[in-house]
């Protein structure tokens, strides 16, 4: 039993994370949402309408009446934004699929490594974070450009006759995304896989399952939570990724992150840019809700 006096203390413990969420997520989102519903304007704030705090109920109602969806209508009407949204989704989904295909065997190999090697392997996955993200992505330009390391190597091996055009294409963006986000796929997968009871694999093997079947029927299903966590951890930021498409993608690679940047800093149309930001949030929140639903249903099925 908890003493009565401990209760306010417990509420106090819950306060900081709530304050944090409120100050750095809810308030900024409310501001972004408000701006996205304001008059289109190529200027600095304030954006109309402005709430008249002294106006009481009347002030509120006139404020709410003045809000409108013009910016979202612009987004829906202009193929540029739709294409950017679809391209972002397609790239993020493709990259997630590639990350699963590469990350799963890497995480599995790490989890199966000897106890002495595992910390070393985890450190190797984390070490790139010591270098700035920007610099690591920038380095890929030197690798992928026509006279870069990759083409030079392939030419020397005689595998290609002329340099490949990789830089400034979607392929370069995919390579960049895969490279940059691999740790976020590997680490949650490894965390789950390294905790799987090896006896379960032995039992499967004892019951006649080949190593391939053991992996597909026992290891992978039990590692599913890590797989889903990794996929979300990669997919969500990749949808809004700006630096990688900006540095590695050509002008034809239109991802939402770049459109957002353009509206905010080139066109200075904050209301429209805010609408793009809200749209992106909706795209990203969708999979999370689906995942939560699936988890709840699976939890119920197990009961």
């Amino acid at each position: 039993m908890t003493p009565r006096s401990a209760r306010p203390l417990r509420a106090l413990v819950r306060l900081p994370p709530l304050l944090w969420l409120g100050a750095f997520f809810l308030v900024p989102f409310a501001i972004t949402l408000k701006i996205s519903l304001s008059e289109p304007a190529t200027a600095m704030p304030p954006y109309l309408p402005v709430l008249d705090w002294a106006g009481g109920v009347e002030g509120w109602s006139s404020f709410l009446e003045a809000l409108h969806f013009t910016n979202f209508e612009t987004l829906a009407g202009d193929a540029l934004y739709r294409d950017a949204a679809l391209a972002s989704l397609a790239l993020a989904l493709t990259a997630t699929a590639i990350l699963i295909a590469i990350g799963t065997p890497v995480a599995y190999a790490m989890a199966r490594a000897s106890a002495r090697w595992q910390p070393i392997l985890v450190a190797l996955v984390v070490v790139p974070f010591w270098t700035s993200f920007l610099i690591r992505v920038y380095a890929w330009i030197a690798i992928l450009k026509p006279e870069g390391l990759l083409n030079a190597g392939l030419l020397r091996l005689g595998l290609i006759g002329a340099p490949l055009e990789i830089l400034n294409t979607q392929v370069a963006v995919l390579i960049g995304l895969t490279y940059a986000y691999l740790p976020f796929m590997v680490l949650p997968l490894y965390a789950v896989m390294s905790r799987l009871d090896p006896v379960l694999r032995e039992a499967a093997s004892d019951l006649g399952a080949s190593p391939t079947r053991v992996f597909w029927s026992v290891t992978l299903p039990l590692a599913a939570p890590g797989l889903v966590a990794g996929a979300l951890l990669c997919f969500i930021p990749m949808v809004g990724e700006f630096i990688i498409p900006d540095l590695l993608g050509g002008s034809e690679t239109l991802m939402l992150g770049r459109v957002l940047w353009g509206e905010f800093f080139s066109n200075r149309d904050w209301p429209l840019a805010s609408a793009v930001a809200v749209l992106m949030l909706l795209i990203v929140v969708g999979p999370v809700i689906l995942f939560r639903e699936a988890e709840t249903r699976r939890g119920e099925a197990a009961r």
């Binding site: 006896v199 004892d206 080949s210």
Partner: peptide, 16 residues
């Protein structure tokens, strides 16, 4: 193990 005509019941049962 998966080719041996013996089976094992594990101490922890190791049920999937």
């Amino acid at each position: 193990p998966h080719r041996r005509p013996v089976n094992m019941m594990f101490q922890s049962y190791a049920l999937f």
